[in-house]
Write a protein that binds this DNA or RNA. Structure first.
Length: 727
DNA sequence: AGCAACCGTGTTTTT
DNA sequence: CACGGTTGCT
């Protein structure tokens, strides 16, 4: 304990009962959590299995577990260190039968859930255009997280009768499919406890101590869970930072941490304000920014390690230059002896990564993108997982309809519609209907299914997967297509086998059901390998809890950061906290960039600089020269939007993005290019000379001095259809 | 039944 | 821009 400061020691050795640790960014929060657990075990005689430590991300849980093992040895394995979702899943796997589900229950992600909503709309004959399935699901999710059942829906929303109907049917459908959505994992656990006091009491007795990380991000349901679990022992130790609450949109309520002292008047409250991560310049900037928020507990970070480099601020003309500036900085950093892996590029929205990826690729800078479209979200992976899901849970109609005719096996819309109707009429899963069907294609499908199903208890998962590939013909059909995209997809399908193998290596006794659960709860951040020498790109949300020597924050423009959709005061405060989180990720050097114009969603727009930049103190900030060595777009050729698809190792390598359920779009490079000085011939305007080319979004604005009609400005993409280059 | 081409629309952040 | 859904052809 000799490396700890007095405040930290106070937190670690706090007496029994409720404890609130308000821990600023970089103040050694995780260390305190770990030391507290070690202290409880060593000094207070608490047994490891009587400790429940909850985190928000899998990565945090893993880090907690590995550091505990280092500290305590093998006994640490008995500590329950999980995310809310993982802990609840574990509780549910044990007792969910009391709620009428079977233990093989399936977990639906946001995408699956939206599809279920869509089916509900169909049943209710409502127009999916009027009731956007994703928005409807967001509504339902919000209500679930606030613990509002369908029957009470209207109390919250006047005139929401149809939404209530959708919500009701949605709940029914999930149950029929023996499925839980993300929110249900928490909701059903609470329900389990409420309906079965003996189960609750079992866990209340089991857990002598509850510790919660990132407490500022808990929502009503999670709050309720914590309160229930600690009601007997009253040993609830929470760590958090109200300034870093960034999940309001997911129902997190900052009230939970702000009112902790009211809730537990006898609580021990400790503030950790000494920062061990960043330079004073970075901290001063962060402090100044966050002071613009009201309703904080009030905290000011400090360090004794010196002021460090000023924060560099760069204004770019457009997003191409912004990206190139970042790439240039990284290149110079590495030329000066630094590592690529020192650098992280953070942004508010995933859509900003594309331009930056292009710039990094152009300079051959190794990078990896965290988040965005996940490996598990690729169409072909979803297909394979769907097969595994129906083997695990035959009632999973959603997954069944996804793959029943993939690859094509003669089961068309009409046949599927018949099965759905009959299943609905009888109130049974679709598989029951298929089993008895005389339809030859359906019978053939059932045979495939049945044969595989017979193997799940006896065959190792990887072999089962091989057999699955074999009997469904999925890979064979891909290979037969013999094109670039299908090859990539086939590779991805094989890559899933590596995931399965790794799961088998990690959990020798792991079942299919557990594998699927691990996939459902997986995120991309935990796949981030800090050991690889590559720059990292991710959203600020993903970056929470991480730190890097050098951080770039890109896209500091009004409408992007803060987001256009977050302009009312409460949302704006959350955006500001997000910015605070971003700034405090940096250890030594922080670069902030913004762009006068930006092409987003296929449209180019001008936006003013973000208000957050004005909230940084001048003395910490230095304007950066826009040092573009060889102007990369000077004699511009329109860059084709050639996306690297899936060559190389399909996952975890830089520069790959899935483009959803359709084949990847590969646009060939346009042959025509106009450069300054070339002579052109236009269908309508005749002969002319190109006098200027400037980049403009994914296009370019070209100026042409025509021989007869004078100078005109044209967009290259449009003009190329009417204009040729004269040789 | 299956495929290709077209149109219209929405697009933050994620356990 | 990129998706989902629809239409129309084979």
């Amino acid at each position: 304990m000799n490396k700890l400061n007095p405040r930290q020691i106070e937190a670690i050795t706090a007496p029994d009962g409720p404890v609130l640790v308000l821990a600023g960014a970089g103040s050694g929060k995780t260390t305190v959590l770990i030391e507290r657990i070690a202290y409880l075990i060593r000094e207070r005689g608490v047994l490891p299995y009587a400790i429940l430590a909850i985190t928000f991300t899998k990565k945090a849980a893993e880090e907690l577990r590995s550091r505990l093992t280092k500290q305590l040895g093998i006994g640490a394995n008995d500590v329950w260190a999980f995310t809310f979702h993982a802990a609840c899943s574990k509780i549910l796997r044990r007792d969910i039968e009391r709620l009428g589900y079977t233990k093989d229950f399936t977990i639906y992600d946001t995408d699956d859930s939206a599809r279920i909503v869509k089916m509900c709309l169909n049943d209710l004959q409502l127009d999916p255009k009027q009731f956007n399935p994703r928005a409807m699901h967001a509504c339902i999710s919000r209500e679930k997280n606030a613990d509002v059942p369908p029957s009470r829906y209207e109390e919250n929303f006047g005139g929401g009768k149809q939404i209530q109907e959708i919500y009701t049917l949605y709940v029914k459908r999930l149950r029929l499919n023996n499925a839980l959505d993300f929110d249900d994992i928490l909701l059903k656990t609470v329900e389990l406890f409420e309906k079965n006091p003996d189960v609750l009491e079992f866990y209340q007795r089991k857990f002598r101590a509850l510790l919660v990380d990132e407490y500022q991000d808990t929502n009503t349901l999670q709050y309720k869970l914590c309160a229930m679990l600690s009601a007997k022992s009253r040993n609830i130790f929470v760590v958090g930072d109200d300034d870093q609450s960034i999940y309001r949109f997911r129902g997190a309520t900052i009230e939970n941490i702000l009112s902790f002292e009211k809730e537990y008047p006898d609580a021990t409250v400790i503030r950790l304000e000494q920062n061990y991560r960043s330079t004073q310049n970075i901290l001063t900037a962060a402090n100044n920014l966050i002071e613009n928020n009201l309703g904080r507990t009030g905290k000011s970070l400090w360090t004794d390690t010196g002021s460090g480099q000023p924060i560099s601020l760069c204004r770019a003309e457009n997003d191409y230059y912004e990206a190139d500036y970042i790439a240039d900085c990284i290149e110079r950093h590495v030329n000066g002896g630094g590592k690529y892996s020192d650098m992280a590029i953070l942004y508010r929205i995933n859509a900003l990564s594309n331009r930056i990826e292009e710039a990094l690729r152009r300079r051959s800078i190794p990078y990896r993108v965290i988040g965005g479209t996940r490996f598990f979200d690729r169409a072909e992976i979803r297909d394979m997982l769907a097969y595994l899901h129906i083997l695990n849970n035959p009632a999973d109609d959603l997954r069944l309809t996804r793959i029943i005719n993939i690859p094509p096996r003669g089961i068309g819309d009409k046949t599927i519609g018949g099965v759905i109707a009959e299943a609905a009429a009888k109130g049974v899963p679709m598989m029951d209907i298929i089993k008895q069907s005389a339809h030859p294609a359906l019978a053939r499908f059932y045979k495939i299914y049945e044969n595989l199903r017979d193997l799940i208890d006896t065959m190792p998962l990887t072999e089962l997967y091989d057999t699955l590939l074999e009997t469904t013909g999925y890979v064979r059909v891909l290979r037969e297509k013999n094109d670039f995209e299908s090859d990539g997809r086939a590779e991805n399908v094989m890559e899933l086998k590596s995931t399965i193998k790794k799961f088998g290596d990690d959990f020798a006794e792991g079942t299919l059901s557990e594998f699927l659960e691990s996939v459902s709860l997986a995120t991309d951040v935990e796949n981030y390998d800090a050991g690889a020498n590559a720059a990292v790109l991710m959203t600020i949300h993903s970056a929470k809890g991480l730190e890097f020597p050098t951080v770039f924050i890109a896209g500091l423009e009004e409408g992007i950061f803060p987001s256009l959709r977050s302009l009312d005061p409460m949302d704006l405060e959350e955006e500001r906290r997000l910015c605070y989180v971003a700034i405090t990720r940096a250890r030594r050097q922080l670069h902030i960039t913004y762009s006068a114009s930006r092409t987003l969603y296929g449209q180019s727009n001008y936006s003013p600089v973000s208000r957050f930049i004005g909230e940084l103190p001048n003395e910490c900030v230095e304007k950066a020269e826009h040092a573009v060595k060889a102007a990369p777009y000077g004699d511009m050729r329109v860059e084709a939007t050639v996306r690297r698809t899936t060559e190389g190792r399909p996952y975890g390598v830089s520069s790959q993005r899935a483009t959803g359920s359709r084949p990847y779009s590969v646009t060939p490079s346009p042959e025509v290019s106009f450069t300054k000085g070339s002579t052109v011939n236009h269908k309508a305007f005749g002969r002319g000379t190109v006098t200027n080319v400037s980049p403009m979004g994914g296009d370019a604005l070209i100026e042409v001095a025509f021989d007869t009609v004078g100078t005109k400005r044209l967009m290259q993409k449009t003009a190329s259809a009417h204009m040729t280059v004269e040789s």
